[in-house]
């Protein structure tokens, strides 16, 4: 039941509120190219602890299974990821969905940030690395993004 208490204590953390939210209508999903962007702090290099104030992102080639969960927080389960990375980054599910026609294709790369940032306003992500991440996805002709937390 420990997660219930964390949900309670973290429910009121300051969040930046967007005053004029954008809305993008996706193409038909059977034609859509889909990427996953996670905040799990996944890395393909040998860095095992994401820096506390690092609002940058990593690029994960589709199909890469050698991933390190470098998120700083102690307050989530890691055993699920250790057993099956699809629990956070469902690349195999996207492949299956592409095969059966539910989506057009899986992106050639996915992205990871690290959540639970020290700067709750996420200014760097909003103004810099977030748009840069979007460009990486659009350069890969991605239409749809599935966002996953930990």
């Amino acid at each position: 039941m420990s997660d219930a208490i964390i949900r309670q204590t973290h429910a009121d953390i300051d969040t930046y509120v967007f005053s004029d939210p954008a809305w993008t209508t996706p193409p038909d999903l059977s034609d859509a190219r889909v990427a996953v962007v996670t905040t799990a702090g996944l890395r393909t290099d040998d860095v095992t602890m994401w820096s506390n104030d690092d609002q940058s992102f990593t690029v994960i080639p589709h199909g890469e299974k050698r991933l390190t969960l470098s998120h700083r927080s102690q307050n989530f389960d890691r055993a699920g990821f250790n057993s099956d990375i699809n629990i956070v980054l469902p690349m195999d599910r996207l492949d299956e969905m592409a095969s059966d026609g539910a989506i057009g294709s899986a992106a050639s790369q996915h992205l990871s940030f690290m959540g639970a940032q020290k700067d709750g306003t996420l200014a760097t992500i909003r103004l810099d690395t977030g748009p840069a991440a979007a460009k990486v996805l659009k350069d890969d002709d991605v239409d749809v993004v599935l966002l996953t937390p930990v």
Partner: peptide, 11 residues
């Protein structure tokens, strides 16, 4: 919010 503003549909 950021990705939608850049033309990506998100969930």
């Amino acid at each position: 919010h950021i990705f939608e503003a850049e033309g990506l549909a998100t969930v």
